[in-house]
Amino acid sequence: MKQQNYRILGDKDADYCLIQAVDEHDEQLLEKEFDAIRQRCNDKKVMLAAFLVDDWFHDLSPWKAPAVFGKNHFGDGATNTLNFVVNTFIPHLTNNVLAKPTETHFIIGGYSLAGLFALWAVTQTKHFKACAAASPSVWFPNWTTYASTCHFHADTIYLSLGNKETKAKNQLLAHVGEDMESLMHILENKKTTFEWNEGNHFAETDVRTAKAFAWCINQLETNLPKTI
C-alpha cells in the first residue's frame, strides 16, 4: 500500500484519530461519513485516516478460508495489513500530520470485512483505544472460536448489524446473528454496545460506520481522565 492510497479528513490537532480500511466504494463516501461523525460528536477534534486496500478478500482476512462470494477465496493478508497500519501508516500520521500526536487517541474501525479486521486487530495490538465494527463479518469461518480464546486489548467496542442480514440466502451469512450473540457474550466484560440498523448489509454503509466511530469517541470522551 503506497502513500498515495490513503485519504485524511479533519483536524490536525485531533484528540481522536480514526483508522479505517476502505475499498473504492467506501472511499467515495468518506466525506459523507466524516460529516456524519462530526454531527454526532459536537465540537470534538477528530481526524479520519482511511487507507485503500488492494485486495479486499485477501488484505483484510486473518486466515485463509473458502470463497463465499463467487470465486473470491479469502487470503491471510491481515497480518501484513496490520503491520502497514502499525509500522508505516500510524508513524506517518504521528510524525507528519498530527499536531499533538502524544495526546491523540487512535480508534480502528470499518465496515463488513474491514469491521472484522478491526476486531481482529485489537486482539493483536494495544495501539487502539477503541474498535468501531459496523456490520462486521463475524460469520467468518472459525472467527467465534478464535475470539473465544484470545484477548481483546481495546476495552471500548461498538458492534452492529442490519436487521435483514440474518435473512440472507447464503446460510453462512444468515448465521451472523447467532455469531454476533456469541461475540457479545465473549465481550461481556468490555464496554460494548450492539445496535440493529434498518436494512440489509449494503444499506447506508457510511452512516452505519459513522455511528460506530461516533459512539466510540463519545464513550472515550466520557471515560478518559480530564486534564486541568
Rank of each mutant, 00 (worst) to 15 (best):
I37W: 05
R38L: 13
V138C: 06
G77I: 11
N72C: 10
T94Y: 09
A132E: 08
F69H: 11
D59Q: 07
R208E: 07
D55Y: 03
A36P: 02
E165V: 07
K32M: 12
M184W: 05
K32G: 02
A14F: 12
S137W: 07
G115D: 08
H25F: 13
V86E: 15
Q28C: 09
E221A: 14
P62H: 01
R208F: 09
E178V: 09
A36R: 07
E204F: 11
M47F: 10
T104G: 05
N189E: 13
T102I: 05
A130H: 04
I157V: 10
K12M: 08
A133V: 01
P62N: 02
E221D: 15
A49G: 04
L48I: 04
Y158M: 02
G109M: 11
L48D: 00
K126L: 09
Y146N: 01
F51A: 05
K44T: 11
L173Q: 00
A121F: 13
T144K: 04
M47P: 05
K2E: 14
A130M: 05
K126T: 12
R208H: 11
L116F: 10
L161M: 13
T123S: 06
F202A: 14
T79V: 11
E198C: 06
L113S: 07
N170H: 13
W120D: 00
F89R: 01
F89E: 05
Q39E: 15
S112A: 05
A49K: 03
I228Q: 13
R38V: 07
H175W: 08
V68K: 11
K32H: 10
E103N: 10
G110D: 09
K44L: 08
F128W: 10
L159N: 00
S112D: 03
A49Q: 00
P66D: 12
E178W: 09
T102P: 06
E24A: 15
C131W: 06
E178R: 14
N218V: 04
W63E: 01
D23S: 11
T193L: 00
N80P: 11
M180Q: 03
H105Q: 15
P136W: 09
T102S: 15
A212E: 02
T227Q: 11
E221L: 07
T149P: 11
P91V: 09
C17F: 13
V97E: 04
F69Q: 12
P141H: 04
G70M: 02
S137I: 13
